[in-house]
Design a protein around this nucleic acid. Structure first.
Length: 110
DNA sequence: GCGGTGACTCTCG
DNA sequence: CCGAGAGCCACCG
C-alpha cells in the first residue's frame, strides 16, 4: 500500500528544508530523493499548497529546462520575482534568459 | 467517475 | 535557439 498523501507532502517539506544556502534542486530531483521517481508534478502539487507561511526555503526549488540548466518555474510573475530575488541574494547566478547556472545544482545529503 | 488543470519534463521540428 | 506537443499523474469541482 502506497504512502498516505499527507506523508508525501511531509517528505517534500523535509527534503526542501535540507537544501543548503546557495544551491537549488529541481522538482524531478526532489521526487527521486523522496522515493517517487518521475513524479515531479506530485512534488509541485505539494509545494503549491504547503509554502503558506512555512519556514522552508521553497525558493530553492526550481524547474529543469534542459540538461544542466534550470529556471524559476512559478507561473505567478510576482512570486517568480520574489523567488529570483531570494536566490540572487544567496549568490545564484541567472543568465539573461532566466537560466540558472550549473554550479548551483544538487547538494550532498548528510 | 469524468474532465479540466498545472510551481514538470522530454522530444521534435 | 525557441516554441509547440505530448506524456505524466495527482488534485479538485
Amino acid at each position: 500500500m502506497p504512502a498516505p498523501l499527507q506523508a508525501i507532502d511531509h517528505d517534500v517539506h523535509r527534503a526542501v528544508r535540507r537544501i543548503p544556502r546557495g544551491k537549488v534542486v529541481t522538482y524531478g530531483m526532489l521526487a527521486e530523493l523522496i522515493g517517487l521517481p518521475g513524479r515531479a508534478r506530485r512534488v509541485a502539487a505539494a509545494m503549491r499548497k504547503k509554502p503558506e507561511g512555512a519556514a522552508i526555503p521553497w525558493h530553492r526549488v526550481v524547474g529543469k529546462r534542459r540538461r544542466g540548466v534550470a529556471h524559476v518555474a512559478i507561473q505567478d510573475p510576482y512570486g517568480a520575482q520574489i523567488q529570483r530575488g531570494k536566490l540572487e541574494a544567496e549568490g545564484i547566478v541567472f543568465d539573461d534568459k532566466g537560466g540558472i547556472s550549473l554550479r548551483a545544482f544538487g547538494f550532498v545529503v548528510r
